[in-house]
């Protein structure tokens, strides 16, 4: 048994299982008709407004899912969250026949983004309006991508610029340029170092976990929304452990702290 379980990771494993079970429980409960109430997120509510504004101005919509790939354990989920938002944005753009431009950095994500957008247009019965050349691979180089993106914003002058996903140093360049061309901007990332840049330069910013909630929130499907309530259970675990840890660390030395001993399992 000891050889199967990897030392120092069991506490994290137990916490992960508990949170996953809580999320699964709330999803199952919602499938039975019991849907929890979820707070409104202004940035997500503003998606329709941003697209509508672009339509009124006769300008295109630019939607980016970040610059990360799908493989990284911390940034990959952000790309998936960005693609979920892209799916919704594409659907809305197709419904109102607005041009949607999707800048892509990772070649491996390009087919997925193209598929998501193409399907959205076909589902809206406007498959002929889908332009594959609008799903633009820009560059795998970080600043090659950002300079291309900036040029795109300056040339196309979009009415809305939606950026949900993992971003690094280019976040400020993109958000500031979007602001200069007068685009209504909705941003979101779980990269803590980039959140302040998005906060000051864009109209709405989804902070951290809100980007993961966006896909569920936009679909308005009960099981997806219920999963957000399951996160509260994990939040409670984090708060309780934080409080116990702070109290015990204050009262005891690290060597004699029983919580630290448990957490090192």
């Amino acid at each position: 048994m000891a050889s199967i379980l990897i030392a120092n990771r069991m506490f994290g494993f137990v916490c992960l299982l508990a949170i996953m079970l809580a999320v699964a429980y709330f999803i199952r409960r919602a499938q039975g008709g019991n849907v929890p109430k979820v707070r409104r997120i202004p940035g997500i509510d503003a998606m329709d407004e941003a697209i509508g504004r672009a339509v009124e101005m006769g300008r295109p919509v630019v939607a980016s899912h970040g610059i990360a790939n799908l493989r990284d354990s911390t940034t990959g989920p952000q790309t998936i969250a960005g693609l979920s938002v892209l799916s919704y944005v594409a659907k809305k753009c197709a419904e109102v026949s607005t041009r949607l431009i999707v800048p892509v950095r990772q070649p491996e994500v390009w087919p997925i983004a193209a598929d998501v957008v193409e399907t959205a247009y076909k589902m809206a019965g406007k498959g002929e309006e889908y332009q594959q050349s609008d799903i633009m691979f820009l560059s795998t180089e970080q600043f090659g991508f950002s300079s291309n993106y900036i040029g795109l914003l300056m040339r196309e002058k979009p009415g809305a610029n939606i950026m949900i996903g993992a971003y690094w140093a280019e976040s400020m360049q993109l958000a500031e340029t979007g602001s200069r061309v007068g685009a209504m901007q909705i941003s979101g990332t779980a990269q803590t170092s980039q959140i302040p840049f998005f906060l000051v330069s864009t109209d709405y910013c989804l902070i951290g976990e809100e980007i993961y909630a966006a896909g569920a929130y936009l679909t308005n499907e009960a099981p997806l929304i219920a999963s957000l309530a399951g996160q509260d259970f994990g939040r409670m675990i984090a708060v309780i452990l934080g409080l116990i840890g702070a109290l015990l660390t204050t009262a005891l030395t690290a060597a004699g702290n029983p919580l630290l001993t448990v957490m090192s399992w």
Partner: peptide, 18 residues
């Protein structure tokens, strides 16, 4: 926590936005 919830939705096959 958001990423874990996303993972659960994906594992249950109900997160299909991508």
């Amino acid at each position: 926590l958001g990423a874990i919830a996303l993972a659960v939705r994906t594992l249950m096959g109900i997160e299909r936005g991508y």
